[in-house]
Design a protein around this nucleic acid. Structure first.
Lengths: 345, 345
DNA sequence: GTGAAAGCGCTAACAC
DNA sequence: GTGTTAGCGCTTTCAC
């Protein structure tokens, strides 16, 4: 086999392969696309020609003709540093990458820059990709929804705006997760359970507070111990301090996310109290703050990586024209019990 | 004017704009591409038609005709989790994204998966992108070098294999950085300076050891205190332990990276010694381990973000056919003095 | 300055 | 099964 793969200046075209193999371009195209209706013999000849010439199909030409790009975009309307530092985002992208690895699709990562929203829209409408995944904490970014009619897309998280009802999204049942976390505390015998809630204008913040309320109500407990924060450790510390300063007894806390829970740790300690001996704490997210906290934080695991995988899977089905895809897909949530919670003394 | 912009299933084409504006397709194309040779009047008419129709050029068709994709790939032959967890990788990608934000280029992120090396090669040769950035710690991945003839590419880090001499890369002067770090220790009055070297089959490991040797030799100091590790904290601890067990006096240590330096911290303490009182330690990389270590680690900052920006800039010049781009571009290195180093007592 | 026409490299009917 | 013939939507000479 003359395997002379000399680096030619211009890549060989399908036409060159056809000539070399003595068949038509259509046949070469069929072979390249694994069409079943080609003689094994011809397939062999064509493949030999392909190898000999080192032919690689031009994806752009292919895309133009087939109207498929075999690429999807992951749009994260956040700065690059945020995207890489926030484990939620990075895990989702990881999940997407994982799912795509088993396919022929490639991934384009679009992050927000100054006013790149317009740039992103043009990108989406310019036929660069077959579909898009929108990942954001900000509800407002469901504004991309309108483009859903042009190109299939799947969102991470439930849309808050009503116009987006018809959009596709993958989410976790935050209400249920918060309920699980709170019930865990209740089962341990705690009765004075506070919550450090997040911003309620975000679906997650809103629903987690609702879940806590639901669990408290179901157990007939007082649900007045509420403080709010914006999901950062500093906010968690401040919220915990505020809770403690009320002077009312508190034997457990449910925090809307791990970062605030870890912030609460320091406030609890500054008050001379121990975790979990005096106060049990449960977080939400199971991010890296949770596992490395001391003591390790009991939390609700939402596996953003699985979420990313699910999003990619759904998008691909949408691209394939699957009409049976449900608008909402809920991911399972799991309580991870660690050492920050203990039975009431 | 019959301005019925009803949401058509298929996007308006350049042809539709031409018809709407009463000009030829060529003229519309010229307007879209800001050609100077079009009357202001005509430009206005065409732009009006574009707005009215909500026309967005199809990038794929454009790419096929112009033979430019306006996209570059960032290839990181590592698993997605590694890419996102290792600050070196994520910072480079951030830098690239930053640079690209000011251009019309988009970024495709390709991470390694099982046997995706072949997939990546096809991607590169398939005309998906105008150029590629290869970011890896593994020298072997300079194997992509051969493709450099097909599509422009820029590597992060100097190639170790000789065949790659003609490739483009951005790197830091590791020898100089190690020398700076070591000289800092020497200037503080230390004389028994050990080094925890990395793997010498990696350019960084090799050169940092060489820099330490050079500085020690220049100062006429003994350069026998050498231990090796594979860049992890555990390796750093083991290496430090080995150094200490020699029983020879040591008053300072230069570690080939921050992670090993932090590992050395624990070994030093287990031996009942204090940092920097008994032993001064300098790291390399200025990653997040360095800043959060206690005491904060004096280290050499290599700013991978700037490196990413530089790589993107160089690649774009290469794509533009700039013949004056040098093969090697060295990024400045800076010593960040923190509290892990102190004058000899 | 503007238009006509010829592709870019491939896929997709439609014949044979 | 295989070849023929049109395009996909745009850029780009080349005339005018």
């Amino acid at each position: 086999m003359t395997d002379r793969t000399i680096a030619k200046p211009s890549a060989p075209t399908l036409e060159a392969v056809a000539a070399h193999a003595g068949v038509s371009r259509a046949t070469v195209s069929r072979v390249v696309n694994n069409s079943p209706k080609v003689t094994d013999e011809v397939v062999a000849i064509v493949n030999a020609a392909i190898d000999e010439l080192g032919y690689v199909p031009n994806r752009v030409a292919r895309s133009l003709a087939s109207r498929k790009t075999q690429a999807i975009a992951v749009i994260v309307p956040e700065t690059a540093s945020k995207v890489f530092d926030d484990p939620f985002f990075s895990s989702i992208v990881q999940g997407v990458a994982l799912h795509l690895a088993g396919t022929e699709y490639t991934l384009s990562l679009l992050m927000e820059t100054e006013n790149s929203s317009a740039k992103t829209r043009r990108y989406l409408r310019g036929g660069n990709v077959d579909g898009a995944l929108i990942v954001s904490h900000h509800v407002s970014d469901h504004s991309y929804t309108q483009l859903g009619a042009t190109v299939p897309m799947v969102f991470a998280g439930r849309p808050l705006i009503p116009e987006a009802v018809a959009s596709y999204y993958v989410d976790v049942d935050n209400v249920e997760g918060a309920r699980m976390a709170t019930n865990h505390l209740i089962e341990l015998g705690h009765t004075r359970i506070a919550t450090i809630a997040g911003r309620t204008d975000m679906p997650g913040g809103h629903d987690r507070l609702a879940g806590w309320r639901a669990a408290m109500a179901a157990a007939g407990l007082d649900d007045s111990l509420v403080a709010h924060g914006d999901f950062s450790p500093a906010d968690g510390a401040a919220a915990m301090r505020a809770l403690l300063e009320r002077g009312e007894p508190i034997d457990a806390v449910f925090s809307a996310n791990d970062q605030m829970a870890v912030g609460a740790y320091s406030a609890v300690r500054s008050a001379g109290l121990r975790i979990p001996d005096d106060i049990s704490i449960v977080g939400f997210d199971n991010d890296r703050y949770a596992a490395t906290a001391s003591p390790p934080l009991t939390t609700v695991d939402q596996s953003p990586e699985q979420m990313g995988e699910a999003m990619a899977g759904i998008l691909l089905r949408l691209i394939d024209g699957d009409e049976t895809v449900p608008n909402a897909t809920m991911m399972p949530l799991e309580l991870v019990v660690r050492e920050s919670t203990a039975p009431r003394r």
